[in-house]
Amino acid sequence: MVSMLDYIYEEQVTLEKIIKEFDFNLPELKDVTHCLILATGSSYNASLAAKYYMESTGDMYIDIQEPFDFLHYGKVDPKFDLVIAVSQSGKSTSTIHAVEKITQFQKIKTITLTSDSESPITKVANHMLNLNMGMEKVGFVTKGYSATVLNLMLLSLAIASQSHRMDEKVLEKEKENLCKAVYSINKIIDKTAKFFENKKAELKESNRFLAIGYGPNWGTAKEFETKFTETVRKPSQGFELEAYMHGPYLEANETHSIFFVETDSAILSRSKALRGYMESHVKRCYVISTQSAGGEDELALDLDVSEKISPLLLVIPFQYFAYQIATIQGIDLGQRIFDDFDQVLQSKI
């Protein structure tokens, strides 16, 4: 049986393939300046992680909305000239209906990102972009999350190129930077495995997990929340750095373990200040960073990567931790639970 860990180990070769085979001549991307992304769950987190790259590299504005809320309460801003609907399975009921709402009343380009070219969502959008990562049969998506982040980044490059905001030389440099990042994934997994072996006893004993990120790695912190909640099944939450300082810190106690996601940024000193303060109030503060060296509780990945690309890599340790912590706690992730949930709640077609 294929496991969540198997898919984690497939990420490097899968993402290499995605970059190599991506079609930068996708239709109707020219002159896109305002883009609405509809996504939920890990797809939402992936969109949040890719947002900064898309806006800065593609030179456009990105708005991300939950499709169910948009369907019942939302309104399309007339400035939007592209809607991207993200659903790895292609069966998300709310996302499908949200796209139908848009295409029924608005003349606007729609693209769906999915791993299944024959899924229901492909029937309601103008165009389909296959995530090109195969079908992930484990419910706790890992490879699919990373594939979504990368495809959104590549899509923004295609938009910038077709809109003549980026020349061929810059496009090739961006592709080279993404390739360089992807080539480091196996190294990241190896370093994460060694770090986990040293920390697994204390991680097993934690009763509350938190992750704090900033900039594009706010999306990484939110995906940590999703993965840990799904697998470790203990209270887990991801926060944007400054948001944590406005109230949530008041719940901190000696049973909490906090992961700080840190990149070389103007915000780094703010993260270090919060970490320094919280260390005496919680069980443990860990750091997942792009740095070349760190202390005993820092997983320093030694990555020569820009902050806007870093979410593609900094999520890997959390995926690995989620699987391993669940396993040492005796949770069988291969055993399906709430098997009738989607059928009863009609959350997927």
Rank of each mutant, 00 (worst) to 15 (best):
residue 255 T to C: 05
residue 12 Q to N: 06
residue 334 G to H: 01
residue 326 A to W: 01
residue 217 N to S: 08
residue 179 C to K: 15
residue 262 E to W: 07
residue 45 N to H: 13
residue 257 S to V: 11
residue 118 E to G: 01
residue 157 L to E: 08
residue 188 I to Q: 04
residue 267 I to D: 10
residue 301 L to H: 06
residue 236 S to H: 03
residue 63 D to H: 13
residue 286 Y to S: 03
residue 6 D to I: 01
residue 289 S to H: 04
residue 144 G to V: 02
residue 171 L to H: 05
residue 88 Q to L: 08
residue 66 E to M: 10
residue 70 F to E: 13
residue 68 F to I: 13
residue 65 Q to R: 11
residue 157 L to P: 00
residue 34 H to A: 12
residue 341 F to P: 02
residue 67 P to T: 08
residue 23 D to H: 00
residue 83 V to I: 14
residue 66 E to K: 07
residue 13 V to M: 13
residue 143 K to A: 03
residue 337 I to M: 11
residue 184 S to D: 14
residue 18 I to L: 06
residue 48 L to H: 09
residue 221 A to S: 11
residue 10 E to G: 00
residue 246 H to I: 02
residue 198 N to I: 13
residue 346 Q to I: 12
residue 180 K to E: 15
residue 18 I to S: 04
residue 142 T to E: 12
residue 138 V to G: 04
residue 259 F to W: 09
residue 66 E to P: 04
residue 231 T to W: 02
residue 214 Y to G: 09
residue 274 L to C: 02
residue 31 D to C: 05
residue 281 H to Q: 12
residue 60 M to Q: 08
residue 238 G to N: 10
residue 253 N to V: 03
residue 268 L to R: 15
residue 27 P to A: 14
residue 150 L to R: 03
residue 305 V to D: 01
residue 323 Y to N: 11
residue 273 A to C: 06
residue 235 P to F: 14
residue 243 A to T: 09
residue 110 T to P: 04
residue 223 E to F: 10
residue 294 G to F: 11
residue 191 K to F: 09
residue 265 S to G: 03
residue 223 E to K: 07
residue 168 E to V: 15
residue 89 S to L: 06
residue 136 E to S: 02
residue 97 H to S: 11
residue 201 A to E: 15
residue 276 G to V: 01
residue 148 T to F: 01
residue 258 I to L: 11
residue 265 S to H: 12
residue 90 G to T: 01
residue 115 S to I: 04
residue 331 I to F: 09
residue 161 S to W: 10
residue 244 Y to W: 12
residue 84 I to T: 00
residue 314 L to H: 02
residue 300 A to W: 13
residue 37 I to V: 12
residue 59 D to M: 14
residue 153 M to S: 04
residue 249 Y to I: 13
residue 66 E to V: 11
residue 37 I to N: 07
residue 225 E to S: 15
residue 63 D to C: 12
residue 56 S to K: 15
residue 227 K to C: 08
residue 231 T to K: 03
residue 60 M to L: 15
residue 157 L to R: 02
residue 306 S to Y: 08
residue 157 L to Q: 01
residue 58 G to L: 09
residue 114 T to S: 12
